Simulated assay, not measured.
Amino acid sequence: MRVEIWADVVCGWAHIGKRRLEKALASWEGEPVEVVWRPYRIDPSAPARAVPMADLLRDPVADEALRACAPGLSPTENRARVAGVAAAEGLGEQWGSEWRASTLEAHRLIALAYEKGGAELQDRVVERVLRAHFVDVQDISDLAVLTAIAAEAGLAEEAGYTGEPSLETLPGAELVRELLLVGKAKGVRTSPTIVANGLALEGAQPPEALREFLEDAARHTPRRLPAEVERLRLAESLLDQRDPLGTLTLLRPLMAEHGDDRGVRLLAARAYFASAQLNRARTALESLVAESPDDSYARHLLGRTLQRQGRHEEAASHLTLAAAMTPDYGTD
């Protein structure tokens, strides 16, 4: 059974949750479990160059946001509370983040570790990244720090690279961007979120709750969709969340491999329309309408596209026909 942990490596609860899951798995007697880490960003606006956390805590805007995370506690009090929980989980007395760091590059290393060496290599990398941030007080947005972690974890040996790997020259950026979109499409909203067999558990829950979750997941048999159908559904979920550019990113391989599929083309046209790429939307919709003149939705969307382009006479004919086929479209 695959257990995915969607988490950010600057999230203290992700570090705590890792230890708690390890305790839950230590007494697990069910089917073999593969733990895979997936990216989530709790601070997507973090600067590319890390800044001391003390500076962040002096920022009134950040202070207000941090207070909302733990009502009734100041950011300093909340940090002390989380550090106490971490100490109780065996993470050490001197534990805590000192840097506000972007985690994009760390997520790239973690994703690359799984792609090249599987769950065991990825776990070694994740453990070292978390330790670097919370225990060794290192800047995990620094490529030199991450390159050293990759070398220490054995990425070169596992992946078959010659020499010490430098993160500057290794792939993975596109993979992370796509995984972040997949998490968003799946509804991941917090770090950590544990997903297994279609079930999800939010937060760093106690080992007992995690074992119960694993038992439920092991009994659950989700419907397995073909990879192409799953990707299409995820892309549509992003459009429903008003992320048309994310939709187009997930659609890219489907458009390359299944460019004749009407469902793929229609979803792409909707995303083009929603992202104001009106020429592309018009081209796609004109083709769809020519193939299926009775597709009232495609015709309606073509009319709206032409309308936004100022081509009102052309738009009117399509909108009128669409409304005749589907009266609800006449009320837009």
Rank of each mutant, 00 (worst) to 15 (best):
L266T: 14
A204Q: 09
V229T: 04
N197W: 12
R242M: 03
A227F: 07
A204L: 09
T190N: 09
A235R: 08
L267H: 10
L250K: 04
D216K: 15
L201A: 12
M255I: 07
T247I: 01
T247N: 04
A209N: 11
A200Q: 11
L267K: 05
E236S: 08
V229C: 03
L248Q: 07
H220S: 10
T221M: 04
R211I: 10
A269M: 07
F213H: 05
P226G: 07
L251S: 07
L254D: 01
D216F: 15
H258R: 10
P192S: 06
L267E: 06
R252D: 05
R242S: 15
H220D: 02
G198L: 09
R242W: 04
E228A: 15
A204D: 10
L239A: 02
F213N: 06
R270V: 01
P222I: 02
T247R: 03
I194V: 15
H220K: 11
F273E: 13
P192H: 13
P207I: 11
R242D: 14
R224F: 09
D243H: 05
E230A: 15
E202F: 13
R231E: 01
E202W: 12
P226I: 12
P222S: 06
E202I: 05
S191C: 11
A256H: 00
R223T: 13
H220F: 12
A269E: 05
D260G: 02
V195E: 11
A269S: 08
T193V: 09
A200Y: 12
T221R: 15
R219Y: 03
L234W: 01
L225V: 01
E257A: 13
V229L: 15
Q241G: 02
A274G: 13
R252A: 14
L214T: 14
R219G: 15
R211D: 00
M255V: 10
H258Y: 14
L225N: 02
L214P: 06
R224T: 04
V229Y: 06
R270A: 04
L210Y: 06
A209I: 07
D260F: 13
R231Q: 06
E202H: 03
R233T: 00
E228K: 02
P206H: 08
L248N: 08
E236M: 00
R262T: 12
R231P: 01
R231V: 00
L251M: 05
P253K: 08
A235N: 06
Y272C: 14
T190Q: 14
F213C: 10
L201V: 11
H220I: 08
P253L: 11
Q205H: 03
A196G: 07
D240C: 00
A196W: 04
E236V: 00
A200S: 13
V264C: 02
L225W: 09
R242G: 00
A218W: 03
A217R: 08
R231C: 02
R223S: 08
R262E: 06
D260V: 15
Y272H: 15
G198N: 08
L232A: 03
L238V: 00
V229R: 13
P226Q: 03
P222W: 10
P244T: 07
P192Q: 14
Q241W: 00
T193M: 11
